[in-house]
Design a protein around this nucleic acid. Structure first.
Lengths: 109, 109
DNA sequence: TCTAGCTACTTGGTAACGCTAACTACCGGT
DNA sequence: ACCGGTAGTTAGCGTTACCAAGTAGCTAGA
């Protein structure tokens, strides 16, 4: 979609990935594929992997290395308690922002 | 609100300011005050001024210097045609993102 | 007069995040 | 032996918001 999307994803992409992981465990390649499926066609693979490393280092997810039949081992991530807390905080922040923006969109004309 | 908000504002703050300017012309100090009023208590003044310079350089707004009775002259910004186009693109990007996130929030549990 | 405080904008440096691009590595089929 | 799909890593870059300090005009009070 372009530069606007790139900038808007800062901060939200993390929440998106955490939200995905709140439903089920997943590994990087899988998440990337799912995002592309959802229309995020231009999200770079490297971005997701870097993000996963980041949230792992922050202790928001647990990681398990699982052998794959089709390639190198997968790093399967699952949201832990701290991650769930962080995700809730994310939703609060998102709600606040979304409310103001919807208000602005309506009031704008 | 914290780091999450800071990151989430990247990309959206610009849209917020453009949306404000789509309703009426305004100057930096005024916009900052309005944002604080709306609950964006921790947006730094410098951030808004920098953003305004940016969108001016991109040709999204027209600027007029207007003397103030209470201090130094104001730089009053108003959205031009190109800015309106850019704002519409912003709303499209935002809608896309907001839809996916709402879906995720519901599906997430 | 001089100082404090509000108004209004500017500037320089920092950190975080997503992007790009190239790379490693495992596996199956041709 | 090679290629394409699977899976992850790394280094450098550009953009953006934050912080801190500074400049400058005006008014009111000591």
């Amino acid at each position: 979609m372009g530069k606007q999307m790139t900038e808007m994803l800062k901060g939200t992409l993390e929440g998106i990935v955490l939200a995905i992981l709140s439903g089920r465990s997943a590994y990087g390649y899988e998440i990337t594929a799912w995002l592309r499926d959802q229309g995020f066609t231009d999200i770079a693979e490297g971005t997701i992997y870097a993000l996963l490393v980041r949230i792992e280092q922050r202790g928001l997810v647990d990681v398990e290395k699982v052998p794959s039949e089709k390639g190198p081992p997968r790093k399967v991530y699952s949201l832990n308690a701290q991650g769930r807390e962080y995700l809730e905080e994310f939703w609060r922040t998102w709600s606040f922002l979304a409310e103001r923006l919807e208000q602005l969109r309506k009031g704008g004309q």
